[in-house]
C-alpha cells in the first residue's frame, strides 16, 4: 500500500497519565495510554477501535495538542511536535491538523450563521481577508461537503439543520484551513443510521481526492473496516492488535479482538454464539503506572502465569499485521 511513503504523523511510545481526585496526600494516577506507537500516512485512514475508557480519544487529543503526552514522542512530517509549535505556535500547527467531534449539536455555535462558522477559521488563520473571496470560499466548502445550494445554507443557523447536515458543516469547517490530517472522534455515532453512511462516504472522498490523512476513532469495528485502510484495536490504554483492516477483522489474533468481533451483532446468527469462555463480569481494569502484565489477562481464556507478570512484546503476524500477545511469541509456545 502506501508503506513506501513517509508517514505524516508518527507516535512513538506515547504514554499519558491522568491524576485522579483523592485527597492532597493520596492521589491515584491512571495511565490512559501506555507505550502506544502508530503511523499515519497521507491519504490513508487509520481507525482506532476500542470500548469507552480504552484511551482511543486520548491519542487524538495529544496529536491535536489538547493534552501533552507524559512521555513518548509525536512527530509531524518527521519533526517533533514541539518544534512545530515553537516555530509556528499552536495556531500554525492547528492549520495542519484539524478535529471533527462526536456531537454536531454541541460543536457549532448556536448564535451564529453557518457562514460565520466556516469563515471564522479562514479569518483566524489569515487565509483570506477580502470579503468576496471569503464568501466564495465558504460556498465552495459547503458544496464540497454536499450542502447545496450553498448560498442558502450559509445563511442558516445551526438549529435549522439536521444532525447530518450539522456534521457536514463541522467537516467543512475543518477543511477550511486545508489541513493535511483530520482527527475524527466518533464522527457518526450520534447521527441517524440512514445518514451515517453519507458522512463516511464524504470522508472517504476527501481522503481519496484531497489526500487528507484521517485518524478515525470509533467503537464500531465494522465501520472501521469500511472506512479505514488500517485498524488498531485498543484495550485499557494499550494497542493490542493493529495492521491492515482486513487482516485485523478477518483473521483476528488477539483474544480481545476476537471477543470484540464475536460481540458484533449479526442478523441471522441466532442468539447462539458461545461467549461463555470469556470472563464476563470481570471488571475492566484501571491501568496504573505500576500495573504489570497484559491488560486483558483477567478476562482472557488463554491467560497463563506470564500474562499477569509482564506486558507481552510485539509479534509480527503478517507484513502489515501486529499483535501484543504471548500466544504468538516464537518462544512462548504452550
Amino acid at each position: 500500500m502506501t508503506t513506501s511513503q513517509q508517514p505524516i504523523v508518527s507516535a512513538r511510545n506515547l504514554t499519558k497519565d491522568f491524576t485522579l481526585g483523592g485527597s492532597l496526600f493520596e492521589k491515584t494516577t491512571m495511565r490512559a495510554l501506555n507505550a502506544v506507537s502508530f503511523d499515519l500516512f497521507p491519504g490513508e485512514a487509520l481507525a482506532i477501535v476500542g470500548e469507552s475508557g480504552s484511551g482511543k480519544s486520548t491519542g487524538a487529543r495529544i496529536l491535536s495538542q489538547v493534552h501533552d503526552a507524559t512521555s513518548g514522542e509525536v512527530t509531524y512530517r518527521g519533526k517533533p511536535l514541539h518544534d512545530w509549535i515553537r516555530q509556528g505556535g499552536k495556531r500554525g500547527f492547528a492549520s495542519q491538523v484539524q478535529m471533527i467531534f462526536q456531537d454536531p449539536f454541541g460543536s457549532l455555535n448556536p448564535v451564529h450563521r453557518i457562514f460565520y462558522q466556516i469563515a471564522r477559521p479562514l479569518q483566524i488563520h489569515g487565509k483570506l481577508k477580502d470579503r468576496q473571496a471569503l464568501t466564495q470560499r465558504v460556498h465552495e466548502l459547503l458544496e464540497t461537503v454536499g450542502l447545496s445550494p450553498a448560498a442558502e445554507t450559509a445563511q442558516k443557523f445551526p438549529y435549522e439543520l439536521s444532525g447530518g447536515q450539522r456534521q457536514r458543516v463541522a467537516i467543512a469547517r475543518a477543511l477550511a484551513v486545508e489541513p493535511d490530517v483530520i482527527l475524527a472522534d466518533e464522527p457518526i455515532s450520534m447521527l441517524d443510521v440512514s445518514i451515517r453512511l453519507g458522512i463516511l462516504n464524504l470522508m472517504m472522498d476527501l481522503k481519496d481526492q484531497h489526500g487528507i490523512a484521517f485518524m478515525y476513532i470509533t467503537h464500531d469495528i465494522a465501520t472501521a473496516r469500511y472506512f479505514a485502510e488500517r485498524t488498531a484495536v485498543m484495550y485499557v490504554g494499550h494497542m493490542v492488535e493493529w495492521g491492515n483492516s482486513d487482516a485485523v477483522t478477518q483473521t483476528p489474533q488477539h483474544p480481545y479482538t476476537q471477543l470484540l468481533l464475536a460481540a458484533v451483532p449479526q442478523p441471522g446468527a441466532q442468539k447462539s454464539r458461545d461467549m461463555t469462555q470469556y470472563q464476563h463480569k470481570a471488571d475492566i481494569p484501571m491501568w496504573q503506572p505500576d500495573s504489570k502484565g497484559c491488560p486483558f489477562a483477567e478476562r482472557c481464556p488463554h491467560a497463563r502465569e506470564i500474562c499477569k507478570e509482564q506486558l507481552p512484546g510485539v509479534t509480527q503476524i503478517a507484513e502489515d499485521h501486529f499483535v501484543r500477545c504471548y500466544l504468538y511469541e516464537p518462544d512462548g509456545t504452550t
Partner: peptide, 8 residues
Amino acid sequence: LDVVVERE
C-alpha cells in the same frame, strides 16, 4: 453501552 457489554 459498549458492544461487549451489550452482548452480555
